[in-house]
Design a protein around this nucleic acid. Sequence first.
DNA 1: GTTTCGTTCAACCATACGGGTGAATAACCT
DNA 2: AGGTTATTCACCCGTATGGTTGAACGAAAC
Lengths: 120, 120
Amino acid sequence: MVERNDPAPDPLTVLLKATADPTRRAILTLLAQEGPARVTDIAGRFDTSLNAVSKHIKVLENAGLVTRRTDWREHLIEVRLETLGEIDRWFAGLRSIWAQRLDALDDALALERDDDDDHD
Amino acid sequence: MVERNDPAPDPLTVLLKATADPTRRAILTLLAQEGPARVTDIAGRFDTSLNAVSKHIKVLENAGLVTRRTDWREHLIEVRLETLGEIDRWFAGLRSIWAQRLDALDDALALERDDDDDHD
DNA sequence: GTTTCGTTCAACCATACGGGTGAATAACCT
DNA sequence: AGGTTATTCACCCGTATGGTTGAACGAAAC
């Protein structure tokens, strides 16, 4: 009874995991530099097998970082950098939470200082 | 000939892998919200074991996302959001590469148009 | 001096991941 | 028809990862 029905990894995790691999990042860079390319052409630029690259591209596709335009057997892979915005947004949220806390701390300190000034 | 002498994982990969786990992101959020905390306190907020949280924190520490101030047995863990800037910078680089390519494309098209105008 | 506390270390387990090889698919080109 | 081309699919393999439990450490408190 394994009961692990977790086929719902949040998109942010999928995205970050996709970018966490050096080869995949290199693929993204290549696509950004040279525009849409076929799977085989991409694979030709790396020392890994075509098969491995195909799998990497599927991961990137699943994360929304690339799209595929299939002109029959030629699959044109295109980068979609907008997707990275999701990560940016998470960072921004985290930083805002952090800033809020610091502001609250500042307020608390200011209040203490006022108190001090008051009855000193 | 696997030639695996040294993993030498680049810092960006370490960083992205560290943020790619939901529990670790939750830990970062918690620290941003409530400030530095002890390992045990952090673990108390999750349904995983203290041990697992300890390991997560080590991963975050190794990535430079948190620092540890050990006051003997109490390890105060503090978030360091500046480290995320490294990821931001990689994104920016990628986007700039992308933009450059589009500019080059634009130029090429403009040149073609000029050519057309010229000898028409 | 024994207990308590906060944390890590050491095994161990199951699953995920990255990579490799070989077969399958499906249209185009002789 | 037979071969080439572009890509995925189906396995197999080694290692990494996240989790668990239990022991160890070392000072502080009793």
